[in-house]
Amino acid sequence: METLLTSNMFPIDSSMKPCIEKSTVINKYSFDACIQAAKKKATNGLTFLSIVASTSPFIGLFGTVVGILTAFAGMQSVTTINMIAPAIADALIATAVGILAAVPAYTFHQILAKKVEDLLATLKMQRDVYLSK
């Protein structure tokens, strides 16, 4: 079923409005194309957050391993724990930094992914309402 587009058909805040306004006749396929365009625009940057959230703990862990190996390599001339403890502490800082980067990135990724999911559900409801008229 095709519908003629009228000026009051979309609320001003609809994410589909700019896409749908390009056409004078709309149907389910044009709505779906506009929903996909809105999804692409809304998910821009989520991949970067996902990469930061998933890789930063591993980068921190790698820094910790390198630091511990360096500390143990220096143990051959060390006789007390007081000489090796600062090197181990520095190595563990790498893990802390990795986790410190991962937690906010993962949190914001989850929040934004949920908002995109909600946006898509709203756009699909709008599509169904407007096509049922």
Rank of each mutant, 00 (worst) to 15 (best):
K114G: 02
S50V: 07
L92C: 00
I84V: 15
T80G: 03
N8M: 08
A101H: 03
F72S: 02
I99T: 05
I88V: 02
F58Q: 13
M75A: 12
T47K: 12
T3V: 15
L46E: 05
A121P: 01
A71H: 06
I81E: 02
Q110Y: 08
A71L: 04
K39Q: 10
S54G: 07
P57N: 09
A53D: 01
Q126E: 15
T70P: 00
S54W: 05
S50T: 04
P11M: 11
S7V: 10
A101R: 06
F31R: 13
I84R: 11
L92G: 05
S30W: 05
L120V: 15
P11F: 13
G74F: 05
Q110R: 14
T43R: 08
S50L: 13
Y29T: 15
A105P: 01
A33I: 14
T95N: 01
K28T: 03
T80V: 04
G67H: 04
S132A: 15
N82Y: 02
K41L: 10
K115A: 09
D13C: 10
L92D: 06
I12W: 06
D128H: 07
I12N: 15
K17N: 04
D90T: 08
T55G: 03
K124R: 12
A73D: 15
Q126G: 00
P18N: 14
I99W: 01
N27M: 08
S14I: 09
S54P: 00
Y106H: 12
F31Y: 07
A38F: 08
K17R: 15
A94P: 00
K124Q: 14
D90Q: 14
M16A: 12
F108D: 04
A121W: 01
I93L: 10
N44G: 05
Y106M: 13
V66P: 00
T80L: 01
T3P: 00
L49V: 07
K115C: 02
F10G: 13
P18R: 10
I20A: 10
F62I: 12
T55H: 00
S50F: 03
T43I: 07
A91D: 10
F62E: 05
F48E: 12
A87N: 02
A94M: 06
K124A: 14
G98W: 08
F62H: 03
K115D: 05
A85C: 00
L69A: 10
E21Y: 09
I111N: 11
M16F: 08
F62K: 00
M75R: 05
S30L: 13
G67E: 08
S7I: 14
F58V: 05
Y106K: 09
E2Q: 15
S23H: 15
V66M: 15
I68W: 09
P11Y: 13
F10S: 10
G60P: 01
N27L: 07
S30M: 13
A102G: 00
A101S: 04
P86N: 10
A89G: 09
K17I: 05
K115I: 03
K41T: 15
Q110A: 12
D128T: 06
L69G: 00
I84D: 02
K124W: 09
I111M: 14
A105D: 11
M83E: 14
L131C: 01
I35F: 08
S30D: 11
L112K: 14
L131M: 13
T47H: 07
A102C: 03
T64S: 03
S14V: 08
K28W: 10
T70H: 06
Q76T: 06
N27D: 12
K114H: 06
M16I: 12
T47V: 07
A102N: 02
A113H: 05
V65L: 14
D32W: 05
